[in-house]
Write a protein that binds this DNA or RNA. Structure first.
Lengths: 231, 231
DNA sequence: CGCGGCTTTGATGTTCATCAAGTAAAGTGG
DNA sequence: CCACTTTACTTGATGAACATCAAAGCCGCG
């Protein structure tokens, strides 16, 4: 049952310490008044490449993909992000427009704060600016390192890498529902859809995973890790 | 002839506006006292992956490569950087140790400032912190975008891409001396040395470039761009 | 019910890695 | 300074990995 005159709840947000640990109570309640929350269903686009950046955005809940369109309109996927991995901050301080698109893969909630307001906060409160800097740096580092990692692997190694990522980092479970299509996997690892499917089929034949449509069950994590490492 | 009791010259540094446009004259002269300059010959290592980050470092002059070693000790090259492209800032605010190595490719001068000092400045001066944030963001964005670009090209497209990069961004000349070995090109574009050589040889046979060892002369930039685009 | 998108498998061809071998260039120690 | 070793560069031959093309089944949706 929703309260009338509902009190602002930013002080209870799990993400508070990430971004606002150096923001005072008064200021936090200011932010709380200004912020807007928005929900997205899987497949919905949060941010479209090329749009002007007006808001500072972070993920409260859900899972998204960051992607970019090539000139011949193929999609390249940069990374998958969940809460605590940053999202909109890429480009936020280096460009006026988004260089990547962001699309929900699962029911997703974001929190938006007008960018000018955030900048004013950052200018007034240097510790807050430092926190932001760390977040940006961590998020981009992660993307760069992950892409390097994938670059040195072959087809099977790349697919294994992504399966392990979903199992260990996103779902914390060896059994999960793939939040992406085979084509999206291909767009992420830089191979074709057909060959992604072939890799998955071979894992199935080798009894490393079970596949029921989008549902994946990892049977032999150890072998998957060896493939990811050596592949 | 060097002056005795040489005055501090940071106010004349070309890079002043990049990092220190929001630093007052007094503070700048403080920084100027603290900063250290260091020179490196081609091949010398500025930063070794895994070392603790103690200094804030930026390029004043020269050309460097950022690279990382894989477990089986192959080198992966992330990017090439010249002054104004940032260098040490990757990881500076997100980790205690360097995640990449930095090696000089040409005679290189860097400027170093103790990291704690920089952090104190950033905490006291939020505009300075914002400037840093923009720089970090730009530098990492560039790396991410460039790697995506390369990912979607084939062998010849990747080699063409790099040749154009050197001609247009580094040397501003269609004739230049390659600052890297064939193997380093391979480590950057993610192909083998042999195939890099084959691509270069074919460009030579097709009269797109001339090759004299490390000296490259681009004869037909237009065709090179087409190859880079379509490849 | 039919259309389009997603998935799967097979057949074929291209691209690229690997192996091998040789030349040139550059560093090393006597 | 010269023999010696190592590293960089180059080309060819071969095979493996991957893309492309084709065809068919499946599912959701209008």
């Amino acid at each position: 049952m929703e309260e009338m005159g509902k009190k602002c709840d930013c002080d209870q947000c799990q993400l508070k310490t990430l971004f606002f640990s150096h923001i005072g109570t008064d200021e936090l309640s200011d932010i709380c008044e200004i912020k807007r929350e928005e929900n997205f269903a899987p497949g919905e686009i949060l941010i479209n490449e090329g749009e002007p950046i007006r808001e500072f955005i972070y993920l409260k809940e859900g899972l998204v993909k960051l992607s970019k369109r090539t000139k011949n309109s193929k999609e390249q996927i940069l990374s998958f992000s969940k809460p605590f991995d940053f999202v909109s901050l890429l480009s936020v301080f280096s460009s006026d427009i988004y260089k990547y698109s962001v699309t929900a893969l699962q029911p997703t909630t974001i929190c938006m704060i007008n960018l000018e307001v955030v900048k004013i906060f950052a200018q007034r409160n240097a510790m807050f600016a430092m926190d932001l800097m760390s977040r940006i740096s961590e998020a981009t580092d992660k993307i760069i390192l992950d892409n390097l990692e994938i670059k040195r692997k072959n087809l099977k190694g790349r697919v294994a890498h992504l399966l392990i990522y979903f199992a260990d980092n996103i779902f914390n479970n060896s059994e999960f529902e793939l939040p992406v299509s085979r084509r999206e996997i291909a767009d992420y690892i830089g191979m074709t859809t057909e060959n992604v499917i072939r890799a998955l089929s071979e894992f199935r034949k080798d009894k490393i995973i079970k596949i029921y449509g989008k549902d994946i069950q990892v049977l032999d994590m150890q072998r998957l890790e060896i493939i990811s490492e050596l592949g």
